[in-house]
Amino acid sequence: MEVLGVAVSLLAMFAGFGVLIGLLFGFFGMGGSFLVTPALLVMNYKPDVAVASGLAFVFGTSVIATLKHRDLGQVDYKLGVLMIAGTTGGIEVGKMGLHWLQSMGLADTVVSVAYVALLGGIGVFITYNAVKDDGGGGMSHDVEDDGEIDADDIPDIAKTIQSYRIPPMMKLRGGVRVSLWMILVVAFATGLLSGLLGVGGGFIRMPALFYLIGVPVPVAVGTDLFEIVFSGGIGSFLYAMDGAVDLTIVVPLLAGSALGARLGAAATSLVDEDDIKVYFGVMLLLGAIAVAVRKIGGAIDMPVLDVVALVIILGAALLVSGAVVVSSVRELRTESAPSVHPSD
């Protein structure tokens, strides 16, 4: 059976995959192309089609997730625009660095090692802080009712960065005050890594917004998604000029992810991050292992390792999205349970 010339089974598979990705994307503000492009490559789509369709899908999903986060008051447009400006400059310099490495014949090795080290390093950092749980470095989705972030929830590095009071100072959502120049430096650094590694950068930018600038996690996620609308839109437009975007992939994926992104974004206001942050760090670590396995498979010409890498990534994604759903339901049930006081 076919719809618009495409097998229904294929549409259903992409839609189901989309729900999974959307849930992670809406909750963490990352994970789109990280999951889609490798999956499409393993399904024997051409590399340019896999990358282009992944980007177009990320663009559509980020539009939906940003709108949902905007409804929840979790997008800081001022910070987003500054991040776009700094990131764009960083990407250009990163691309120059990549071309220089290519001319030296070192690009593939350096990029592969740096990518795995960065992904794994961020994973270890977040997991360590989550397990340590000293209140000064963990990621918390909680925002105070008055919209101000609790000083104890601001990571130490962010406190140091906020202490550099170089004018003009910017007031951000969550009551955070930080120098414009510090924001641009952080944005430039994340853009530099994106340009050098050739990745979207959500997994770098979202933790950077929280750990370096100190905005609450929901605002970090919402603002990161706002930025991805522009980077994804421009990227997919450039690829679409060469006719590489395949709508039979993008349309059903987006239909599924729109539902998942809505659930994921809603879960950011519901879930106690303490239940989830370890899984997030573990997902990054497993992602680093998967990328390393794929790179080794390419180096020794063993395509089966591509499939192993995909299984690791999908397994990690299923584990984390399952944890988000379970924690959300548990939180809902806790909220509805009648509170019992000792005096009663």
Binding site: F57, F59, G60, T61, V63, I64, K68, A240, L247, L254
Partner: peptide, 28 residues
């Protein structure tokens, strides 16, 4: 799909991105 399989160039790319944006808004 939607007769846009063979489009390319700035106009085709704009149409394609427009379809994705429209779908995103309709789904939202």
């Amino acid at each position: 799909m939607f007769g846009l399989e063979t489009v390319s160039g700035p106009v085709g790319a704009s149409m394609l991105i427009g379809v994705v944006l429209l779908e995103a808004l309709v789904l939202y």
